[in-house]
Design a protein around this nucleic acid. Sequence first.
DNA 1: TGGAAAATATTGAATCTTCAACGATTGACG
DNA 2: CGTCAATCGTTGAAGATTCAATATTTTCCA
Lengths: 147, 147
Amino acid sequence: MARSSSSGKPITEHLVYLLAQANREINRQLDARFRDEGVPVEQWRILKVLSDGKGHSMGELAETVLLNHPTLTKMIDRMVTDALVYRAQDAEDRRKVLMFVSDRGKQLTQRLNLLALRQEAHISENYGNKATSDLKRLLESLIEKAN
Amino acid sequence: MARSSSSGKPITEHLVYLLAQANREINRQLDARFRDEGVPVEQWRILKVLSDGKGHSMGELAETVLLNHPTLTKMIDRMVTDALVYRAQDAEDRRKVLMFVSDRGKQLTQRLNLLALRQEAHISENYGNKATSDLKRLLESLIEKAN
DNA sequence: TGGAAAATATTGAATCTTCAACGATTGACG
DNA sequence: CGTCAATCGTTGAAGATTCAATATTTTCCA
């Protein structure tokens, strides 16, 4: 006890560490499922958001896909090169750029959605339905409070 | 209902997204607290693990601080430059490099630990003691199952 | 023992991300 | 109206991460 006061509690007991660890692990597993499609998880997020067919501005998109602006701009550049999405200028506010998903992008999105749903199902099975939904609920409310 | 089957459930309902979002947010807040010390959260993890005074090999360290080997090697290079840690060859197994924290590193670690504990306290307050410990418990068991 | 295979850490090149600065457009308001 | 500040997205340079390949040491076992 004497010595442990200076070293603090172990890192594995910090929420910030547990979140990082869980995130890393789950993200990795999804990445592994996406391997064949060669698409990083971030691009799936982008595609998924755009798949409502409406145009989304870069700013809004950056916010919801958890990337900062310059990172998103360059990731979108790559996706445009791959013909997954395209840009259009917003007529209402010409500072804005609206992003849309292409047909090719839509097809890819569906394949990725399927892989993601399989992962969720796999987690629910191994980890338990209740635990999974409890965890989600807690995360949602943590996120809400954190803002 | 008709249309939503092709678009799948919203991304905000995916565990993998909620984890990413929560992790990003909490990590950011800690980073903000570390701002004055100019130390990224990853370096705090390294310092904290090393602060038991024992030598830790690069492999073991990489595992527990959630970095892959080359990333860790280069981050350690920077920390050596900043005189926070130092390397020593393992006498038992000369393939291994053992990492130790310096005195300067120890002092920094204590300051960072304090900031991290304040964050935890702040979260517990705003988010609730029970919710916090429930969340931790669920994360721990998710991580366990995921391996 | 000797030599192939595995384990450990590092390196260099390529890729990705971030930071600070910029250009263009819109909004605010004197 | 005119101009000054704020918003939006992009860019170029710097910094960090990753992938594949390498060097070194140890382990295994024929």
